[in-house]
Lab assay of single mutants.
Amino acid sequence: LSQDQINEYKECFSLYDKQQRGKIKATDLMVAMRCLGASPTPGEVQRHLQTHGIDGNGELDFSTFLTIMHMQIKQE
């Protein structure tokens, strides 16, 4: 990932990090990914979360979000 991409991801991540705690809700993951041009299915989002041990009510930090985005873009 280039620095530009990382900055773009950070900007989008921040939109969903409403309390500015450095985390977004798992329920916002799909929308955040789509905001960056990825098109994950609900099943793919579920798999990404399970891979990282996050349940549907959990939260993920930016580095986890980056990893998930990277995996998603590689497979699209």
Results as ranks from 00 to 15, higher is better:
L1E: 06
L1N: 15
L1R: 06
S2D: 15
S2H: 11
Q3Y: 07
Q3S: 06
Q3L: 07
D4W: 01
D4S: 09
D4C: 03
N7W: 05
E8I: 07
E8V: 06
E8L: 04
E8A: 13
K10G: 07
K10I: 09
K10H: 14
E11K: 14
E11L: 07
C12M: 15
C12F: 12
C12S: 12
F13M: 01
F13T: 01
F13H: 01
F13P: 00
S14Q: 10
S14Y: 06
S14D: 09
S14H: 10
L15I: 13
L15D: 11
L15T: 11
L15F: 14
Y16F: 11
D17E: 06
D17P: 00
D17K: 02
K18T: 11
K18W: 05
K18F: 06
K18G: 06
Q19I: 03
Q20I: 05
R21V: 10
R21T: 11
R21S: 12
R21A: 07
R21Y: 04
G22H: 04
G22K: 08
G22S: 05
G22N: 09
G22A: 04
G22C: 03
K23C: 13
K23G: 03
K23D: 02
I24H: 00
I24R: 00
I24P: 00
I24E: 00
I24M: 14
I24N: 01
K25E: 13
K25Y: 13
A26I: 05
A26D: 05
A26P: 04
A26S: 12
T27M: 12
D28C: 09
D28H: 08
D28M: 07
D28W: 03
L29E: 00
L29R: 00
M30S: 14
M30H: 14
V31A: 11
V31E: 14
A32F: 02
A32M: 08
A32N: 01
M33S: 03
M33D: 00
M33A: 06
M33N: 00
R34E: 14
R34H: 08
C35G: 14
C35I: 10
L36R: 04
G37P: 02
G37R: 09
G37Y: 04
G37A: 06
A38S: 14
A38G: 10
A38N: 03
S39E: 13
S39V: 08
T41V: 07
P42M: 01
P42Q: 15
E44G: 04
V45G: 02
V45I: 04
V45A: 07
R47G: 01
L49M: 08
L49Q: 15
Q50I: 15
I54V: 09
D55N: 13
G56D: 13
N57L: 04
G58S: 10
G58I: 02
E59D: 01
E59C: 10
E59P: 02
E59Q: 12
E59H: 02
E59W: 05
E59I: 04
L60R: 00
L60T: 03
D61P: 14
D61W: 02
D61V: 06
F62P: 01
F62M: 05
F62H: 02
F62I: 05
F62V: 05
F62K: 02
S63H: 04
S63W: 13
S63F: 12
L66F: 03
L66A: 15
L66C: 14
T67A: 11
I68F: 07
I68W: 00
M69S: 10
M69E: 01
M69L: 07
M69P: 01
K74N: 14
K74G: 12
E76V: 12
E76W: 08
